[in-house]
Design a protein around this nucleic acid. Sequence first.
DNA 1: CCTTGGGTGGACTCGTAGTACACCCCCCGC
DNA 2: GCGGGGGGTGTACTACGAGTCCACCCAAGG
Lengths: 192, 192
Amino acid sequence: MPATTREKLADAALRRFYRDGFRNVGIDQVLADVGISKTAFYKHFECKEDLVLLGLERHDVEAQQLFDRVTREVGGPTALGRLHALIDVVEQIIGDEEFRGCVFVNVAIEFPLPHDPAHVAAANSKRAIEKLVCDLATEAGADDPAALAHELCLIMEGAYITRSVGCEGDTIAAARRLARLAIESRCGGRPA
Amino acid sequence: MPATTREKLADAALRRFYRDGFRNVGIDQVLADVGISKTAFYKHFECKEDLVLLGLERHDVEAQQLFDRVTREVGGPTALGRLHALIDVVEQIIGDEEFRGCVFVNVAIEFPLPHDPAHVAAANSKRAIEKLVCDLATEAGADDPAALAHELCLIMEGAYITRSVGCEGDTIAAARRLARLAIESRCGGRPA
DNA sequence: CCTTGGGTGGACTCGTAGTACACCCCCCGC
DNA sequence: GCGGGGGGTGTACTACGAGTCCACCCAAGG
């Protein structure tokens, strides 16, 4: 899919940054991956950090597509089903051999200064996903869609972290159980 | 409390690293904080990263004490009360003006290589906290204490992240609600 | 007394981000 | 046919931060 050199660079860079950390990856490694010279690189990007920006932008699109696709495939036609399927999205993401935490969160933490463009971009992507969840929650008739979305996103974040930083224990089972409790308690689980 | 120069250095360093990120903080800034020369510094530590190790070690002690103290003060004498009070610990932590996420998680992400000593130390601290929670869950008579502990820790992690990376929404309310659901569903909330 | 621990200062190496310059080649449009 | 622009090369450069080295200082204690 990466058509232009610019995109190839951003994708290769984000892969490495994600795996080894921004700090631990030299630009030269990325250049070698793509097979380009430093001079050429700096005609495409102003600085190393800009690789992250474009990388995130592209990853953001992919992530939202993944959410959309998996919730539809697993959750079926109803919004309620799709809400439950959020955990299947999570399961797919953390099931990856190379999973190392949520890309957005990692970037937000590696660029902690609040006004850092990379930090802002990562935070925006997170918010966009919460928005998607909120729309689903609304459609599912939750009593307080924003609150349910916040709860479900909290669970997803928790699952990513719990899985990526030294856990034993069945994270997916925990996440699914919590999500079920949250959804049932907000979506007419008690149709009085 | 920091008695020795070594400890002063580690504490000052961890503060800065936590706030601005390891990458963004020069050793010189830490040296200036403590008022010591570079040469003297390298008589105390082998490298910049070792600051993180000692800093984490000290923070680990503090964090466990905080958990212990707050759960006792807020949760009262019963293990069940203390389990609920976990969220009060979280509330206190994320209520801090300078809160920027969980220190351990941030370090684990800033040092993503699995065998990096800092990564390992951070992961161990996380596990230690889950162990504390598990003990509480056992004492509270949870049907599956390990699972409950995993769920509660997942909620805590989720709360830290959700709060630190660009959220609106009442994170504490969400965490408390999820924790209550989880605890009730595992601790004879339905004494049939 | 003189050794040891903690401290200073300054000059050094080295790795990596980023710049500057001179050059190449291919395609497209005038 | 040719000229210009986009994308590419290589090499040599600056800048900065981590970490080393060396010579030195001073106070406390056996």
